[in-house]
Design a protein around this nucleic acid. Structure first.
Lengths: 203, 203
DNA sequence: GTCTATAGCCAGATAGAC
DNA sequence: GTCTATCTGGCTATAGAC
């Protein structure tokens, strides 16, 4: 990609700041409770200026999702480059990364039930492309881990993939974090254990 | 409890119809996307009449939660009466019941992030009491199952309890159901396996 | 208690000057 | 592109007749 002009760099930095605020507010309050006024106040610009950068509240949410998916993709690529790790270890590393992001209050949570938001997301090509790019290597590792008998082969790969996505937003983390009794690391270890080892005892 | 007058019975039936509609709409659209107009239309009465029965939208949601918690309590009591079952089997039976309710589109899902709703719920004594009444026997069974080594004893009972509550609203069910590829029974079996056996293969 | 009609408010989006 | 000020629609909640 070519060099950006000064004006374009300024634009880029401002939009990054906006997306970062949206990300945090989505993680904290959720899409429905987050207001565009709050986003503007958090960034420190006028609401009308926000709308010069993003066409709608849904577009803001989509940008936040794109950002976190890009980070996920980077994590996945780092795991792919680690030739030491098994498929299961790679899946666990990516899952742990997602839990750490959520624990840090930076995992945007979108209501799967809001239909206008869903429509906006599936119409947003960068988002869809990234979902594909993320799902592909994860799906391959799942199949591989089932083949080497480290993942439950009785489950369709699809079910495992969806479960991993769902655990990235697992509300249990927020509840345990809010209780204030345990360290973030401890909480993540327990949620990882619930996910991969299950609640039932292992013999 | 004494007999109800005819008027009181009519009132009761109408309120049951309201709560049932709220329950379904909460499961389908979530609290924020559900409107009081929709509830009124679904019940077939005027919105103003709704407000004669329930003081606010939050009160409607609380009533729906109370209803589902009462059903959960009945399921728990049925399991407690079943002297054949082990603690783990009882927990699994209750979890399966919750998944079946969700699969039937009747598990109300409330956003944990909406603060006004949270405030209304914790101020609603019948709701809080039922949460306690449900948590108590479940907690006891968890401790018992950890003692007899059928549940993972390395996890705090609290973590397991919260995880079971979270799985009752697991979005994975909705995604798999929406794909239309699998039978409800099949989906529930898979989600149960993910929850209790974990994603990793058992040796 | 039920209805119709409406108040009141809030949040998403825009107009138009600079 | 940024701002202030405003529009607009939708939603919760209520007034008031019957």
């Amino acid at each position: 990609m070519g060099r950006l002009s000064f004006r374009e760099q300024v634009l880029r930095v401002r939009e990054d700041a906006i997306v970062h605020s949206v990300n945090r507010l989505l993680a904290e309050k959720g899409f429905d409770s987050m207001t565009v006024d709050e986003v503007a106040a958090d960034v420190g610009i006028a609401k009308a200026s926000l709308y010069k950068h993003f066409a709608s509240k849904e577009a803001l949410a989509a940008a936040a999702m794109v950002r976190v998916l890009q980070l996920a993709l980077a994590t996945i690529e780092a795991q792919a480059a680690n030739s030491e790790a098994s498929a299961l270890q790679r899946l666990q590393a990516v899952t742990r990364w997602a839990l750490e992001v959520q624990m840090a209050g930076e995992m945007p949570s979108l209501p799967s039930q809001n239909s206008t938001l869903r429509a906006a997301l599936i119409a947003h090509k960068p988002y869809l492309d990234l979902v594909m790019q993320v799902s592909e290597p994860l799906g391959a590792w799942i199949v591989q881990a089932q083949a080497d008998k480290s993942l439950n082969a009785a489950l369709p790969a699809e079910v495992i993939l969806y479960t991993l996505f769902a655990r990235a937003c697992d509300p249990v983390l927020g509840i345990l974090k809010a209780s204030g009794q345990y360290s973030p690391q401890q909480i993540i270890d327990w949620v990882m254990a619930c996910c991969f080892d299950g609640l039932a005892a292992r013999v």
